[in-house]
Amino acid sequence: MAPGAQFAAKRLGKELTKISKGLPAGIVLVQGDNFEEWLLDIQVLDSNPLYMGQTYRLKFKFGSSYPIEPPEVVFVKLPDRPIPIHPHIYSNGIICLDLLGQQGWSPVQNVESVCMSLQSMLTGNTKNERPPGDEEFVRGNRLRPKDIDFYYHDNNV
């Protein structure tokens, strides 16, 4: 067991207790029976035509240093769970959000706050497009999301 795993498990246990008491509207915990990987569904609540009526599946992967280090968060594609279209979301589900990077993460964040940030990131978007260079990126990338050095060109989208 890695030295921090206790810490991560304990913290995730705490979050789980809180989640069991209720999550904000549009966020549902699908699977959270271990302290490694959780699945959540999110929906955009307002009537943004890009995302209306859709549900998206998020996969959280927690390292043993969580919450000191950020979790790895990606959208997962399933028959009824598409990857939302957004200039910061690659078509393989990888999200380019500074909050999830080494620099932008803070240990006071949690699963719930990350989901809410993603919700609002989708709510505020009007562009029906993928990030520039999406195709090459999706074809060529073998790195794990957290190891990618994103250039956070535009923080207010």
């Binding site: 067991m1 890695a2 921090g4 302290f35 390292g63 043993s64 240093s65």
Partner: peptide, 20 residues
């Protein structure tokens, strides 16, 4: 120093007679 890349191995219980 904290590990650079946290392992994703589960917090498995230790073997029977040797403590983790």
């Amino acid at each position: 120093p904290l590990p650079e890349t946290p392992t994703s191995s589960p917090p498995a219980p230790g073997p029977l007679l040797s403590p983790p």
